[in-house]
Amino acid sequence: MSALSPTLTLRRSRRRARVWHGVMVYALLAILLAFSLLPIYWLLATSFKTRFDIFANPGQFFPFPFTLHAYQQVLSDPHFLTYFKNSLIVNLATSLITVALALLAGYSFSRFRFRGNQALLLFILATQMFPSAVLLLSLYILFRQLHLLNTYPALIISYVTFGLPFSIWMMKGFADGVPEEIEQAAMIDGCSRMQALLRVVVPMLVPGMIAVALFSFLAGWNDLMWSLTLTSSTSMRLIPPGFILTYVGQFQTYWNQLMAGSVLVSIPTVAVFTLLQRYLVQGLTSGGVKG
């Protein structure tokens, strides 16, 4: 990690200032992360408590007695793994398709000025501006006629439309930041435009692609109503409706299991991101991008 980040660079001349700066950065980081992480801590703590303690001692900060009972319950339910597997399949496919489509469309919107360019971009965004509760009724009928209910493709294609409009705009923005001379040089060397895009431009768009991939993964990951409506068999359910089904019952809510299940499904996502985020910086080092 040799690249020095901008703000730090400003201060490198003075050692004392740098120490002070470091302290400030960590203090700021602690405050900012505390806001995000305190509710997460409560989720985690709840998942290690007995159901009795959750209600009997609402202020109990450290789970005592500490129990893995909720985790055992969650993992011994065969449906849990089904929901998790379904969510991974659907959202990973969504993510890959969205990145591919957004990359192509975003690049073209960035490079070509054609009539209706702006209107088309606004139209793409406008498809997000209608209440899904009303859309769903018609979509259900459409998908039933096409025999797509209870299938992965129905969910994947729906979720692609969640993330795609924004992703196209994002990729256009990132592509705008890549100077045209770079791919023109490649095209003079004999590359087709597509080859130039894939070989020269894409490596510079990697940070944006990672961001878009994660965004489109999570856009579907968080959905409840669409997957609830478009699937009805237990073997096709995704995590959000599956969790509601299992832990938010008619008679009572299984708080500790709900939280334990969430912890279990969140860990892999965060782990993958932690690995992937290295590529967020790759754009910086892969070429002399001008501003």
Partner: peptide
């Protein structure tokens, strides 16, 4: 079994009926 969450069940049955 078509398992539906209790709180959303009438709505889901309605959508199914319309479809």
């Amino acid at each position: 079994s078509v398992a539906l969450p209790y709180n959303e069940m009438v709505n889901q049955l309605t959508v199914m009926a319309v479809g």
